[in-house]
Design a protein around this nucleic acid. Sequence first.
DNA 1: AAGGGTCCGGGACAGTTGACCTGATACCTG
DNA 2: CAGGTATCAGGTCAACTGTCCCGGACCCTT
Lengths: 196, 196
Amino acid sequence: MARMPSAERRRQLTEAAIRAMARDGVAKTTTRSIVAEAGLSLSVFHYCFDSKQALVEAVITTLTDQSVSVVQEALRPRDTLEETVAAGFRAYWDHVRAHPETHMLTYELTQYALREPGFEHLARRQYELYGEAYAELIEQLRGAMDLELRVPVSVLARYLAAMTDGLTLNYLVLGDAAAWEDILDTVTTHIAGLVR
Amino acid sequence: MARMPSAERRRQLTEAAIRAMARDGVAKTTTRSIVAEAGLSLSVFHYCFDSKQALVEAVITTLTDQSVSVVQEALRPRDTLEETVAAGFRAYWDHVRAHPETHMLTYELTQYALREPGFEHLARRQYELYGEAYAELIEQLRGAMDLELRVPVSVLARYLAAMTDGLTLNYLVLGDAAAWEDILDTVTTHIAGLVR
DNA sequence: AAGGGTCCGGGACAGTTGACCTGATACCTG
DNA sequence: CAGGTATCAGGTCAACTGTCCCGGACCCTT
């Protein structure tokens, strides 16, 4: 096995853990299955990480940042408001459809963090970052388009975050792609109606 | 230990398992912790259930039916539409605030079911029942109040189910009760606007 | 070229978990 | 009251998992 610095090995193991967890689920992912996915020996694991928990923490922060990037990437300002909202939902929706296991894993890790003593802040951080990403976009749009909101930015941001979250989970369970389109249309017009 | 028929023992163990899982999380709940919670010996467990999976299945179906009852109980028809929606949200919201661990457990079990081969149908059933409960109420209201919907019943029902689901999860993670009120107000007026 | 720090491999260990097995005991039937 | 069945208790087992240890290989400095 090619030698490489610990920092890079840690990244390699983190990526392997994400793949293994997305495939098998968090509960069924062991230190052995992770190193097998990475093609390494078990001892390397505890050379790079103090414990399995330390790796899980790395996995959560990595995946949270990735998820926030997905949202930020999707929600770019466009010409009109409706267009922005519709295109944003579409981009996010495409990502969910393309990587369902990853989104599934995100939910699993949220609950893992809520249950694991000392990890609760990681779950909160994830949801706070979502809300902030939405809030920033709304502020940005408000400035660019001279919009007047009927509801506070924080309320709207949190509503958007919670709703996309619920719709995503609903899709992951029921998997009916067609229903989503209609729901997103309804929500899009709703959002558009909340501004002047 | 008092003797009792197997069926009742099964119910007793199922209840104990729900308490243990809500307290410690699904992953950390073992057959031993369940029988300890029930005050029984380990052998009783495998006398009443073929396997741990069989018990988890009983837990899931029991809890799903309970959750659906909560929704049905909350969403009773009132005088006006807005009143019905607002009161329904309030009743549901009160239940979430009073029993956060139970709702948390519901999410955990959904993911357990999705990951466990042969259990996927239990997760789907749960979300289908939610949707049906909402759809039935909408139909009922439409008949009683002579409403005309701007969107199909199925779309509205699924939107409501997904949105409450997302909001609940958001609350369980961030726990900010105040924000909920405003969001529910926004959603209530939205729903009211979707009918004529 | 030698030595020390960094990285990797295989093996081992203790704890836990789901499952099972053998008896013992209570309840019911006839 | 006797026999049989249903219910319970304790002990045991095999498998798995996280963690750790020790020896060896590699690489960089001096």
